[in-house]
Simulated assay, not measured.
Amino acid sequence: MNPVAYDFRDGVARIRLCDGARGNPINQTTVDSLAGAVRRARADDAHVVVLSAEGRAFSFGGDVAAFAEPGDTEQRIDDLAETLHRAISDLHRMNAVVVSVVHGAAAGAGLSLAAAADLVLAGESARFTLAYTKIGFSPDGGSSLLPASLGLHRALRLALLNPVLTAREARDAGLVAEVFPDNQLADGAEAVVHQLRTGSRDAQVATKRLLRETATPSAEAALRQETLSIRARAASPDGREGVAAFLAKRPPRFPGTAMSP
């Protein structure tokens, strides 16, 4: 089964994570399919791109079990991050307004993917958390761009303390644009897509480019730094212990930490 579905009609490209039974894990197969879907949206010259997901969550984030597989961990993480970052960079630069529609959990790289959109829409029961440092990793997926959109100290709290934000807390923090009752999320998202689709595309694209380039003028360099950082963290003793603890469902005992959790 392809973990990402693509549909295009009436100027709207819909990219849907569809490995819902496993929580839409972000692994190499998923990001390869995601990157392909984003390329198709660019080739179709979409006016609006909608990112959504099947199942009970938008995405639980990285496929941690895959990080523990034998082999070159650094190269595996590098390949994964680089492919994800190319897709996110394309979403940032394409001549379309990108809308993510979030239900359930958006964790780790799932939050990063949701935040790559220009507008984030959420059901009221949605939850957002970065969680990278819980397994000894540093953030990727464009997370280092969050200080430009959320403010430095809010982004540091999100990255270092790993709080789980409710949909309304995420809206108050500036991450989410609109919150809808869960049973009205689909209709609410369609109303936003309709508003964008019937507006001036040229004005929308010019506005997106102006604000993104002003807020994050070095986005490409930041994404590369994320790749270098997370590959080193994943292969470090703390990263290996974090993955092992996550899979064993126990608190991590990071080698460089004197205190037990």
Rank of each mutant, 00 (worst) to 15 (best):
G151S: 02
G141I: 05
I230K: 06
E226Q: 15
R224V: 10
R197L: 12
F137L: 10
V192E: 11
L165C: 01
A148E: 14
F128Y: 07
D182G: 13
N183V: 04
L146S: 12
G141A: 04
V176H: 09
E169V: 07
A206G: 14
A131E: 09
R154A: 13
E169H: 05
A131N: 02
R201C: 12
R212P: 02
D182M: 13
S229V: 01
E226V: 08
L165S: 02
R168L: 04
L228R: 05
D172A: 11
R171W: 03
R209G: 11
A215H: 05
R212E: 10
P139L: 02
D140A: 13
I230P: 07
T198I: 09
G142Q: 02
S149W: 03
E220F: 03
D172S: 05
R168E: 14
I135A: 08
D172P: 02
S149D: 06
R171I: 09
K134T: 04
H194N: 06
A189T: 08
G136V: 13
R127D: 00
G151P: 01
H153C: 05
L146F: 05
T133Q: 07
A131Y: 03
L196Y: 11
L165P: 02
G142P: 09
L210P: 08
L156T: 13
P139N: 00
E226M: 12
A215R: 11
G174S: 00
P139R: 00
A170P: 11
A186V: 08
L223I: 08
E178Q: 14
R209F: 12
A170G: 14
A191R: 15
S229E: 05
A167I: 10
S229T: 09
P163E: 02
T133F: 03
H153M: 07
A126E: 01
F128V: 03
S138R: 10
D202Y: 11
A148V: 05
R171M: 12
R201W: 03
V205I: 15
K208M: 03
G174F: 00
R197M: 14
A222M: 13
F137M: 07
V193S: 01
D202S: 15
L185C: 04
A148T: 01
T129V: 11
S138L: 03
G142V: 02
I230S: 01
K134V: 00
T227L: 01
P163L: 15
A215V: 02
F180S: 05
P181D: 13
T207D: 11
S229A: 15
D202F: 07
R154F: 03
A215G: 06
H153L: 09
F128A: 06
R201P: 13
